[in-house]
Design a protein around this nucleic acid. Structure first.
Lengths: 257, 257
DNA sequence: ACTAGAAAGCCACATAAAGCCACACCAATC
DNA sequence: GATTGGTGTGGCTTTATGTGGCTTTCTAGT
């Protein structure tokens, strides 16, 4: 009987670490089907190389770096579920576009470990995350960086988007109006998101349920490629949720972990 | 030379490695119908040619270029000193371009706290760092991301560079040749760096002393804007250092903290 | 704040897979 | 027919992993 390569495990551990910030010994042990002691030895070796720090129960990423700062993401669980649901739509060999935002970041995290994909994004954290997998080809849509989003916006970004065609586009939104339409904070961002939709053969908006109660000023003109909305749950009392459910096909992400 | 069978095997092993990142001895043995010992000899031979690295149980793709994301930066102190020296050239209100690399990252770190600056960069870590200051306007030059550098390279990047003109450009280099010229790992990177030089009214190459003993294959064609080299110290015994000092104005960064 | 139980860590030992080396073998080549 | 280079085999060493016993650390309930 042959033994799986230890070095592959090391690589995947580091990937999981990039995506999640921390990993637990028991999770890794079950995931790889090896004993906890083996995982401990892996983590110890990686820690000696200075690639992570071990903590009781697992390991943690070194904290100096441009992190996908896990700065208290609201409704992290719901966004992770949306990410997993969206990732199921992504098939081997596809080229996809991922917009910036904490919800779309959930999708990127779910794609870690996949290979034979091409990801276009205007988000720096997503770009770094994807590039570090080393198995996903990553193209960054450059432009002027908006510090709040840590993503590129602007004329150059619009221009770059126009040069590509992808299989799927996953778009964020600032909020959802009472009419069920998607809205954004600025004119430029709305324009850019509309263009991103048109870049894909099919486009999905990723928005968690908190967006139904958010109103942002600029309407995003939906492109014909818009295939639906992926969210975690529909707040039944929200007019925006009711309107949206009548307007777009909605895919509910099971919040079960 | 060798049996045709063996040559086929070597090629296919490298191909499998390219596709999967790693291969196991036992898998290859069953796949080719030969003994594990033979596969080991194959891997050993390929490892001696520098085409892969052997690990217990198989082999792993080599990452030719030392990765930036491994946190231990060689000669961090010298690079920080170079960064401070370069930062002194940057005046209020300027627009500057910062190339990717660990040395140029030192410059970016020295600029934290400054304001009224515009920074163009193709490096994701530098872009994030600058954007997070919120006082420095940041423009990211997009394109395909090279995982080792965590920076954008490619046709789109070249195209974007051409659209800007900056006051100062700070360029990295893979190595310095015996003739004192700057060299790089790939044709594309060399081209891109040359274009970056031409983007500035004046351009400086930032390279610490370890670069004088590094030889990388592709020559960077210097643009006329190249105003000099900023380094931490000149290894007197290195022919590359002597040649460079005769060819370019050199600014030595005081290593004093 | 204290303490008991549970979970995780550590160490030593056992074992199976992998690596290494010397030698034998086989099939082309000169 | 001798030579040469690739390949397989057997014996030994090394490495990776699992297991059990013990210690340490965390957590929750009083």
């Amino acid at each position: 009987m042959s033994r799986p390569l230890a070095i592959d495990r090391h690589g995947q551990i580091l990937q999981a670490l990039e995506a999640q910030g921390s990993v637990s010994v028991s999770d890794l042990a079950t995931r790889f089907g090896v004993s906890m002691e083996t995982i401990r030895r892996d983590l110890k070796a990686l820690a000696e190389e200075g690639r992570l720090v071990t903590v009781h129960g697992g390991a943690h990423r070194l904290t100096n770096e441009p992190s996908l700062s896990r700065r208290t993401i609201d409704n992290a669980e719901g966004k992770a579920a949306i990410g997993r649901a969206a990732a199921e739509l992504v098939e081997d060999g596809m080229a996809i576009l991922i917009d910036s935002g904490s919800t779309t970041l959930g999708l990127a995290q779910s794609l870690v470990g996949r290979s034979n994909l091409t990801v276009l994004t205007n988000s720096l954290p997503i770009g770094l995350l994807m590039a570090r997998t080393r198995t996903i080809r990553t193209i960054l849509l450059g432009g002027e960086i908006e510090p709040n989003d840590e993503a590129a916006f602007g004329l150059d970004t619009l221009d770059l988007i126009k040069r590509f065609r992808v299989d799927l586009a996953f778009i964020g939104a600032g909020g959802i109006s009472e009419t069920g339409d998607f809205t954004d904070y600025t004119r430029l961002a709305a324009e850019q998101r509309a263009l991103m939709m048109a870049c894909g053969q099919a486009a999905y908006v990723l928005a968690d349920h908190t967006k139904f109660s958010k109103r942002t000023p600029v309407l995003i003109t939906p492109a014909p490629q818009l295939a639906g909305l992926i969210t975690d749950r529909l707040p039944s009392q929200e007019p925006a949720a009711i309107a949206a459910s009548q307007k777009w096909p909605i895919r509910l992400a099971g919040s079960s972990v």
